[in-house]
Simulated scan of single mutants.
Amino acid sequence: MDKVLSFHQGRLPLLISMPHAGLTLTPAVEAGLVDEARSLPDTDWHIPQLYDFARELGASVVAAEYSRFVIDLNRPDDDKPLYVGATTGLYPATLFDGEPLFKEGQVPSADERATYLEKIWRPYHGTLRQELDRLRAEFGYALLWDAHSIRSLIPHLFEGKLPDFNLGTFNGASCDPALAERLKAVCADAPAYSHVLNGRFKGGHITRYYGDPANHVHAVQLELAQSTYMEEVEPFAYREDLARPTQEVLQRLLASVLEWGKGRYGK
Rank of each mutant, 00 (worst) to 15 (best):
G85P: 05
R122H: 14
L132S: 02
L101Y: 02
H125V: 10
H125S: 05
L90K: 02
I154M: 13
E138N: 14
D78S: 11
I120S: 00
D164L: 03
T115L: 11
A86V: 03
P177M: 13
L117R: 14
L132G: 01
E99L: 10
V62K: 00
K119R: 14
A63W: 00
K80T: 13
A110S: 12
K103V: 05
I154W: 01
L101G: 00
K103F: 04
T169P: 03
D77I: 13
Y83R: 15
L157D: 02
E138R: 14
T88G: 05
R151H: 08
T87A: 15
E104A: 11
V84I: 13
V70K: 00
E104W: 08
P163K: 05
R134Q: 13
P177W: 11
D77L: 14
A142L: 15
C175L: 07
R68I: 07
Y66F: 09
N166F: 02
A142F: 06
P155G: 09
L135Q: 09
F139I: 14
A63I: 06
Q106P: 01
D176V: 04
Y116M: 10
R75E: 07
T115S: 14
E131K: 00
T169S: 15
D78W: 13
L162R: 09
W145A: 03
D133W: 03
E104R: 14
V107R: 13
P100D: 05
L73Y: 02
E159R: 15
L144E: 08
T88L: 13
Q130N: 10
F165T: 04
L162Q: 10
D164G: 04
L153R: 13
R75M: 08
Y141V: 12
F69V: 02
E99I: 00
D97T: 00
Y141C: 12
L101C: 02
H156M: 10
F69P: 00
A110G: 07
F102Y: 15
Y124R: 04
R122F: 06
G168N: 06
E65I: 10
Y141D: 09
D72H: 05
E159L: 11
G126Q: 13
Y83W: 11
S67E: 04
R136S: 10
P81G: 06
A86E: 09
G126C: 06
S60E: 03
L95W: 05
L167A: 04
P81E: 09
V70D: 01
N166H: 08
D97S: 02
T87Q: 11
N171P: 01
E131V: 00
V61K: 00
W145L: 11
P108R: 02
K119A: 13
T169Q: 11
K103Y: 06
G85S: 09
L95C: 08
C175R: 03
N74Y: 03
F139M: 14
G160V: 02
F165H: 06
W145F: 13
G172A: 10
E65L: 09
F158T: 00
E112Y: 03
D176N: 12
W145G: 01
G172P: 07
R129M: 05
C175N: 07
D79K: 07
L167C: 06
R129T: 11
I154A: 04
N166T: 06
P92D: 04
G89C: 07
V62C: 02
G85A: 08
L90S: 02
F170Y: 15
V61E: 03
L82F: 08
A93T: 13
Y91F: 12
L153Y: 11
R75I: 05
Y66G: 01
